[in-house]
Write a protein that binds this DNA or RNA. Structure first.
Lengths: 188, 188
DNA sequence: TTCCTTATTGAATGATCGTTCCAAAAGTGA
DNA sequence: TCACTTTTGGAACGATCATTCAATAAGGAA
């Protein structure tokens, strides 16, 4: 057929994610992307379209990975609450790296329809998993039954944003740990 | 002496705050600032220095106002917990507008030393007020005494970030209200 | 009024922005 | 080896970026 690519799209995308999560959309230039991704300018545009499309692809991939990691953590442990704790612990542990999801919301809000759809898909996937786990934990008597599972799912997502912003602002590991504990304490 | 200014620095700064909180630092151009502030380009540079200095001044003024509003809310009501509730309610109520503090942390992290100092000052002012109020509420029996007041202060700040990010992502008023309630529930 | 100082206005600066054109390079199937 | 198709690298595009220069305008002190 024709000449094959010399790079892997997903690996290049991971490099782009690394730049975007640190510098944001507006703070990232095409030159920075080319340097980090290790590909030519034209290759970038051939493979990903323009900068906005690349950003959308980066957020999509990042969100999917992040959602998958959350769901994997949820499945660990014996009791349902153990999985929930594992999910919170993971967020606390990895809060040192900026979250592309949080930063994307902070920077762009809901002004990009394409981005809204990407977020809605990830949100739905994560939320349904959390709701199921919360219901199980309530059946176990580990989460108060007067709480609406859907509200609790919103609570977790918001708490994670809070923890990540705190970390990005320079909070210590101890403080972040306390935040994770209080997140769970609200559900007793 | 000489010709006086035709505009008020603080009013112009408020206009700049309005642009920065919506579009971020990198997403805001000098032209957007000139248009919003209603002053000439040269006047902007004469009065505020370069774009970074103007941003610092905007964050400083915004943080001071925000801290003051929090402290004012804390002082309302009979019991200490009433003031705390008022502070949380205010955040929930006004979460519709993007927070320059949260967005600044999300976008820039701790990479600007000057900005770090501005944040530290506002943080200290807010935190000491919260700590005192929490101690009073603990004495009243309205907040669990096994919680460290300083940790609780960190908790409030992080929760506010979470609520504001949720709002910026499109969360409904009902969801935001639930988040405010859960923030307090963690302290029982 | 006259002078002095500062504010204002608008054009212009070089740099960098995102994006594209174009020619050379290179792998694949015949 | 040849022809075909796609990738690749680099120069180039107009637009916009933050910032400044130069000239005019305007108020206060004498």
């Amino acid at each position: 057929m024709a000449r094959p690519k010399t790079f892997d799209d997903d690996m290049a995308l991971d490099a782009a994610i690394g730049v975007f999560r640190e510098h944001g959309y507006e703070g990232t230039s095409a030159q920075m992307l080319v340097d980090a991704m290790g590909i030519g300018r034209q290759s970038l545009y051939n493979s990903f379209g323009d900068k906005a499309a690349l950003y959308n692809a980066a957020v999509r991939r990042y969100s999917r990975n992040e959602t998958q990691a959350h769901r994997a953590a949820l499945r660990t442990g014996d009791r349902a609450i153990d999985g929930i704790r594992a999910m919170v612990d993971r967020v606390v542990r990895e809060a040192g790296l900026p979250c592309l999801g949080v930063n994307s919301v902070a920077e762009l809000g809901t002004s990009w329809p394409a981005l809204n759809e990407i977020r809605a898909a990830a949100d739905h996937s994560l939320r349904t998993a959390i709701v199921a786990q919360v219901e199980a934990a309530q059946a176990d008597g580990d989460i108060a039954v007067d709480l609406d599972p859907d509200t609790v799912a919103t609570w977790f997502v918001a708490s994670f944003s809070g923890i990540r912003i705190a970390a990005r602002g320079g909070a210590s590991a101890e403080h972040l740990k306390s935040l994770g504990e209080l997140t769970l304490r609200a559900l007793r």
